[in-house]
Design a protein around this nucleic acid. Structure first.
Lengths: 197, 197
DNA sequence: TGACTTTAGGACCGTTCGGTCCTAAAGTCA
DNA sequence: TGACTTTAGGACCGAACGGTCCTAAAGTCA
């Protein structure tokens, strides 16, 4: 299809590797050197392919976010119930040790101050998409009578989203996993019994 | 008390102003220039007083954290109940518009990757201290029969802590305040009725 | 006055930043 | 072969980074 020498690397794989560094260190704290080392590319190739640091970051966000969304959808398909899926997500958040990283999308939401509006819009779009998966999970349980219907699935999904982000923060801050697990169980009681009246 | 020319600025006030910049932009993204501009000090004075950027940041954390803790304690004293206090805290989180900032301590927890262990310990200590105020609020309600005792106050406090951090993230990510308020109400139902059995 | 200290300001430091440009080699196609 | 494109590598850029040091003025005390 294309003439000339072909690419000697997989652009998406390089994006994955770079995303990993951004995820661990954030945008500002990640130097160009670190990006080159992580991607294995030369400066020429990286700029040719992705533009500049900012645009590279945006492409990372996009690729990473879609991967996460897909993983969530797959996880939901394989789960016995929406509640099981959500419990698994929260458990994963807690069990991932504190130091390295967290989720690139959530991290970026926290960083947003210094980044531009385009990035903010991207983050918001992914928040909505992640939440959509959670809503699907909840509505599925409602349809199966596992969850009382009067509770708005979207509001509940926001609680789960907040819990994911919040538990991650506490985990990063060095809170004990055992405690967080018990708190997690408390949160999940919201999925078991009517939340009002 | 001291000989020589006296300080021409209030060290704590300068710390407050500097904290504000760190809070909005984070450690890495905040330049020395920005710190000088915010504090109104000359480079000489700032280095003389606070050491270097990293140590300045740590002193900001300390001062900021203590201020927040005091504000929380005062808020609890004036509230009609522990639950009222917690509801007010969550409402404040949501109503503070997205763009500028959040809480320096929570932000730093998110940033922790690039910062050293001393900072991590400081963040954790404040998490514990903030949570202690929440625990006090919850135990107070339990003693007054407003909250069922079988629920461990500490676990519930972790849920609130996570909610604070998580709601802030969602808010930064541009989620609608009205929705977050409804989610907030859901979370608060955990304080109204027995969480298990 | 003299001892002391802080002040603002700027010179200066080496390093790193993100980013551009160029070159020569190498791979792929018609 | 010739056309085309990517490759790695390095030279180079101006700017900003955090940080140190020095000076001359100014304020406070005994």
């Amino acid at each position: 299809m294309s003439i000339g020498r072909p690419l000697s690397f997989d652009p998406e794989q390089a994006l994955d590797r770079v995303s990993e560094v951004f995820r661990q260190r954030g945008f500002e704290a990640t130097s160009l050197q670190a990006l080159l080392a992580a991607s294995g590319l030369s400066k020429s190739s990286l700029y040719q392919q992705y533009g500049n640091k900012q645009r590279l970051f945006e492409q990372c966000l996009e690729h990473y976010g879609e991967r996460i969304e897909n993983e969530m959808r797959r996880g939901l398909e394989q789960a016995a119930s929406g509640r099981d899926f959500i419990a698994a997500v929260l458990e994963q958040v807690i069990s991932e040790a504190a130091p390295p990283g967290g989720c690139l999308i959530f991290n970026t939401a926290s960083d947003l101050g210094q980044l531009d509006a385009r990035v903010a819009r991207r983050v918001n779009r992914f928040f909505v998409r992640f939440r959509a998966v959670l809503i699907t999970a909840l509505e599925q349980d409602q349809a199966n009578g596992l969850l009382p219907e009067p509770v708005a699935a979207r509001d509940l999904a926001n609680v789960i989203m907040a819990s994911i982000g919040g538990l991650r923060l506490l985990s990063k801050g060095g809170m004990q996993q055992a405690e967080l697990r018990r708190s997690c169980a408390l949160i999940l009681t919201l999925l078991e019994r009517p939340a009002h009246r």
